[in-house]
Design a binder for these strands. Sequence first.
DNA 1: ACACTTATTGACAATGATTTTCATTATCAA
DNA 2: TTGATAATGAAAATCATTGTCAATAAGTGT
Lengths: 140, 140
Amino acid sequence: MSAKLWLTQLQENGYRLTKARSAVVEIVQKSLRALTPVEVYDMARKKYRALGLVTVYRTLEKLEELHLIQRVHQPMGCQAFISAGEGHQHLLLCQNCGQVAFFEGDDLDILTKSIAKKTGYKIQEHWLQLFGLCANCRVN
Amino acid sequence: MSAKLWLTQLQENGYRLTKARSAVVEIVQKSLRALTPVEVYDMARKKYRALGLVTVYRTLEKLEELHLIQRVHQPMGCQAFISAGEGHQHLLLCQNCGQVAFFEGDDLDILTKSIAKKTGYKIQEHWLQLFGLCANCRVN
DNA sequence: ACACTTATTGACAATGATTTTCATTATCAA
DNA sequence: TTGATAATGAAAATCATTGTCAATAAGTGT
């Protein structure tokens, strides 16, 4: 029922509740893999035919702004989105089926401190992403 | 003089040595920050006016193929390239001036192994990137 | 130095992704 | 219910990238 929570979030931030938004939210929220705007469009239109692609872009923009989704960077492209994890999480992507798993992993402090010392940089953020095969794809 | 090495690399891989390629290589090779194709185009055209943007794209493609440059992913966009580090290196980007530093950091084995166990994934690759302020920008 | 083969080029067009514009519609507060 | 206005979808505009093609230039053999 987390889709309802997302809609509530939108509402609480002054955005209106519409059929278009509901359709987009429903698709993106429950997806286990990152979806491109066009993919969201195609899938959501099965629920709400009148939906326009432009609205998908605009809705994704708002969801990202509210940190409900995040952009996923991959070698093949960076225009896909996945529902964001709670707090500070990293992604683990299946190179075969695209399924996304989240993990926490801030054992990076030691590393970042040593890098900071070596380079003179003040480190403020980090991106860590793992790629591999999920339990299913591993077998086949 | 590493620009000459890049040109040699191109030649050794069966590509011809041209003015257009020299101009592109000269700019990209010595840049301390990641450059977009258009930025490369603008800068390289100061050396070789006849240069076309399409050729910039094609040259970058070849340089990436030879692992002389690599694509840099950033929140604001993923279409910039920087001269690649030796072997397996990670990037550290200054959020103010864009300067890029490289570092090695494969102390990630412990982390990846624990994630693999928890998630059931077979982990094959990782992306790690740090963001911060370089020594210069830190002060100002 | 020359001619010849063919990779490379730049201009233009085509594509694909994203953004802007705008008149119409639908949400939500009063 | 009504009215202000946020949100919508369609079409056009913009921006990044790729494909096409005739003209050019690199590098080979002479």
